[in-house]
């Protein structure tokens, strides 16, 4: 659980940021093995070049998983009700990704008070890579 009290969390409040990377080829190999996503476009440069790509690129779900951490490290994984993101640009090898979340709405649903958060992942050059939202329940 994070240091911020969910009950007093204000609209517009940012959550503590999570930064990861630069993303190495080792990380991509480990993510392929750990996740079971063996798409060679992420781990085999020969395959990538044969497909006309300059290099392998990162699994979108790697950033997705780290972006979810911003929310669960703060609210606790048990409070998470919904998490979704669009993959708006490709995450390249060596990108350093900044993952951020901001509270945007407070509402009632399922007999509990919930917060909606905007979540966004951005590379070191300002390029947005993922963009989505999360819903957490207040304890």
């Amino acid at each position: 659980m994070g240091a911020i009290d969910l009950k007093t969390a204000d609209i517009g409040s940012p959550l503590p940021e999570v930064i990861f990377g630069p993303i190495s080829r080792t990380t991509l190999a480990l993510y392929a093995g750990a996740s079971g996503d063996h798409n060679p476009a992420h781990i085999d440069i020969d395959f990538a070049r044969n497909a006309g790509l300059p290099d392998v690129f990162a699994h979108g779900m790697l950033s997705f998983g780290v972006l979810a951490r911003v929310v669960t490290q703060w609210a606790g994984v048990a409070a998470l009700r919904e998490f979704g993101a669009r993959f708006v640009s490709i995450t390249q090898v060596h990108d350093k990704i900044s993952c951020k979340a901001t509270i945007i709405e407070r509402f009632e649903a399922g007999g509990e008070t919930r917060l909606r958060l905007a979540v966004v992942a951005t590379a070191q050059d300002g390029r947005e890579t993922l963009n989505g939202d999360a819903v957490v329940a207040l304890a």
């Binding site: 997705f64 994984v77 998490f83 993959f87």
Partner: peptide, 17 residues
Amino acid sequence: DYRYLLHGEERYFYEAP
């Protein structure tokens, strides 16, 4: 076809752990 594949969007709805 993995040569041309990208991930568009992913969303989860959590009912229980």
